[in-house]
Structures are given as structure tokens and as C-alpha cells.
Simulated assay, not measured.
Amino acid sequence: MKIKNIAIAFGVGLAGGYVLQKALQKSTLSPEQVMQLVKKTAKKALDIDGAWIYLSPENYQQNGLTYKVYKGGLTAKNNENLEHYDFIADASTGTILDLKAQ
């Protein structure tokens, strides 16, 4: 009887770990979702003409904290001139962590 209980507990633990792993993996937004959020935020200050984003998230450190981020760029019109901006956005929330004019 004890072996049966141990086997059941092991199976439940294994299934729970699998479900938890899948839930944690889904906490990263897709690059398309992040791009939409970045453009929505940037449109408040910039006249966006074009945008791009790397499809693979990467680790980024800022102020002693490590984030999973997407990097990309925006092109914006400024008095009929085009300006390029590079951005770094949090992969979990889409929040812009850094935006620099080039």
C-alpha cells in the first residue's frame, strides 16, 4: 500500500510541475504583443513611421536587476525628417525600459 501512495504522490507532483512550468513559460509576451504595446506608448510622443523587433528575448541588466527583454527599433517623423530610435522592452509586460535616439 505504501508503494502505491508513493507512486500516486510522485505522479501528482510530476503533473503539477509540468503545469507550473507551462504557466511560467506563458508569462513572456510574444514579440508581436510587445511591439504593439511599445508603439502604443511611443505614439504619445512620436509620429511613428515604422518599427521592428528581434524575435528572441534576451537577458538585460539595469540598476542591478535582470530582465527578460526584447530589443527593437522605431522610425519616427520629426519635421519631415526621419529619426531612428532603439528600444528595450520588458518581455513580460511590454514596458519600455530604454529608448534612445540614434
Rank of each mutant, 00 (worst) to 15 (best):
L37D: 07
G17Q: 09
K40C: 06
D49S: 03
K40E: 03
L14E: 04
H84C: 00
K2E: 05
E83W: 02
G16A: 09
G72T: 00
S56V: 11
D47E: 07
A51R: 03
K2G: 11
A51F: 00
G11W: 10
I6W: 04
A7S: 14
A7G: 12
K77V: 02
A76F: 06
Y85F: 06
K4A: 13
H84D: 05
Q21A: 11
M35I: 11
P57Q: 15
N63G: 03
I48F: 00
E83K: 07
L20R: 01
G17W: 14
G16I: 05
Q21D: 13
K100P: 04
D49T: 07
Y54Q: 11
D90Y: 15
E32R: 13
I53L: 11
Y67W: 15
P57S: 15
D98F: 09
I53C: 10
L29H: 14
Y18N: 00
S92A: 15
Y60T: 04
H84M: 00
L20F: 08
G72N: 05
F10V: 12
A91L: 14
G73Y: 10
S27K: 15
Y60D: 06
G94E: 08
L97G: 06
I48Y: 01
I96H: 09
A9F: 08
L46C: 07
V34A: 14
L37T: 02
K40N: 09
T28F: 14
G50A: 06
W52F: 03
K39I: 02
T28I: 14
L65T: 05
A45D: 07
Y60G: 04
N81D: 06
N79E: 02
L29Y: 07
S27P: 09
E83M: 03
T75H: 00
L29D: 14
L97M: 10
T41D: 06
I88W: 04
A23D: 13
A45W: 10
S92R: 15
M1V: 11
I8W: 15
L99D: 02
N81T: 00
V34H: 15
T95A: 12
F10K: 15
K4H: 12
G50Q: 09
N59A: 08
K68P: 03
T66P: 01
G73V: 10
